[in-house]
Simulated scan of single mutants.
Amino acid sequence: MVVSTEPVWQELTDEFVQEYENAVVYADMEQETILHEGALRILANGWIELPTDRMLSPEAVHHIDI
């Protein structure tokens, strides 16, 4: 029997991560409040990871223009 030492969950969540080089993250429908412009990663759990290691909650983000 072969047993992996790597967690399977990490491999599965990596499949759902989306990376964008140029995106704009808005906090409101009117597009008046910009939370971030530039590269970002959308994680499998909905959180937004920024290049500065800052995380944005899915509840804080209204929408993202890619």
Rank of each mutant, 00 (worst) to 15 (best):
I64T: 14
W9M: 05
N22F: 10
A60S: 13
L35Q: 06
E6H: 07
A44H: 14
A23K: 00
M1C: 08
I64P: 07
I48V: 15
I34H: 03
A60P: 01
S57M: 01
M55F: 08
D28C: 05
G38H: 14
E19S: 15
E21A: 14
D53I: 04
W9D: 08
L43I: 03
E59K: 06
I66S: 08
R54V: 06
H62W: 06
E32R: 09
N22E: 15
A60M: 13
N45T: 02
M55N: 04
L50R: 13
P7N: 15
M55D: 01
L35N: 05
M29G: 00
I66W: 09
W47Q: 14
L35G: 09
L12F: 09
V17N: 12
N45A: 01
E11I: 08
R54Y: 02
Y20N: 07
W47H: 11
I64Q: 12
Y20T: 09
Y26D: 02
I64F: 07
Q10H: 06
V17R: 06
A44C: 14
E6C: 06
L12M: 11
L50C: 13
F16D: 15
D28I: 10
M29C: 01
A27F: 00
H63Q: 11
H36N: 07
S4A: 11
Q31T: 12
L50W: 08
E21Y: 03
Q10K: 10
T5A: 12
I48D: 06
W9V: 06
I42D: 00
A60C: 05
E30M: 04
V8Q: 08
L12P: 03
V2M: 11
H36F: 04
L40Y: 13
D14I: 01
M29Y: 01
W47D: 12
T33G: 02
P58L: 05
L40V: 13
S4T: 08
Q10D: 07
E6R: 10
